[in-house]
Design a binder for these strands. Structure first.
Lengths: 147, 147
DNA sequence: GCTAGATAGTTGCGCAAACAACTACTTTTT
DNA sequence: AAAAAGTAGTTGTTTGCGCAACTATCTAGC
């Protein structure tokens, strides 16, 4: 019984650590991306996901999954980015319910500008987290994932 | 140069994995806690943090840190829980700017009711994540943290 | 002891999120 | 071939968040 209870406690502690690390990284990225490119973290995630996609286009549902957002939030997120000229909607030829989104040249340019900021901020956020005793083990585990 | 670029890419991939795992666990917990106890994940986090605190009281700032929320959001979060009678505000004697929050009996009762739901949902969410190839390594690393 | 600056918490405001209801299109069933 | 069920995306509405401005209190410097 004690063993089982321990497992529960270990999982809960692990989840708290995961949430804390996620929160601190996200906050850092939010600040940095907002300041450098007027992008939120999810907005950056969309641009980045599109740029890493073959053919540079994705459907709304894929985008919703990639950002962990509801489909209504995805609609409005894409609206914002479209209004800023960073991506365009393209009707799906084979499935007329579907809509592809694709980076514009401006979108690619802004992403290229934001990416170094993102990567450097991520590195420094991880470094900062590594110096916090309660986060350190998870940061190390994260770095050792797929070397 | 290639080595350095690789490190950047590994970190970015690790961050995406972390965010995806965090998002999927949080969504599961949100659903389950909402259904069973009408609590959001942050609300549960507050109750849980208070219950694990010596003397069962924390100051607003501590709570803000524990939940990764702004202080204004913390004020309103505490308002909601106080309105529901789950915790009470207590003025700080030694520092009259400060305010302690403390679980009420009802708060303790609701937490006791929600905790098994939380723990079981967490376990099943981790199990589900473990069967997704892109999340599996991180889940394993999380489980191996502090055995 | 008094002013200057820091810290704790709250409030006004704009924004982005989820949910549910809706339209449009596709696939399945019969 | 028509009806039923399912899927893709959008819109109305409510809720909770962060930022900036504010009050109240504490702490230093002189």
């Amino acid at each position: 019984m004690g063993i089982k209870d321990d497992a529960v406690e270990v999982r809960a502690q692990g989840w708290r650590t995961l949430a804390a690390l996620h929160g601190s990284i996200e906050a850092e990225l939010e600040k940095a991306l907002q300041a450098s490119s007027d992008l939120s973290v999810v907005e950056y995630t969309v641009l980045d996901a599109l740029s890493r996609q073959d053919g540079w286009h994705m459907r709304m549902q894929q985008l919703a999954r990639a950002t962990a957002l509801s489909s209504s939030a995805t609609t409005r997120l894409v609206n914002r980015l479209e209004d800023r000229g960073l991506l365009t909607r393209i009707l799906c030829a084979d499935d007329r319910r579907g809509i592809y989104t694709e980076l514009t040249v401006d979108g690619q340019k802004l992403l290229e500008e934001a990416k170094p900021v993102h990567d450097e901020t991520l590195a420094s956020a991880l470094e900062a987290a590594e110096s916090m005793p309660e986060l350190e083990p998870l940061v190390r585990a994260l770095g050792a994932l797929q070397v």
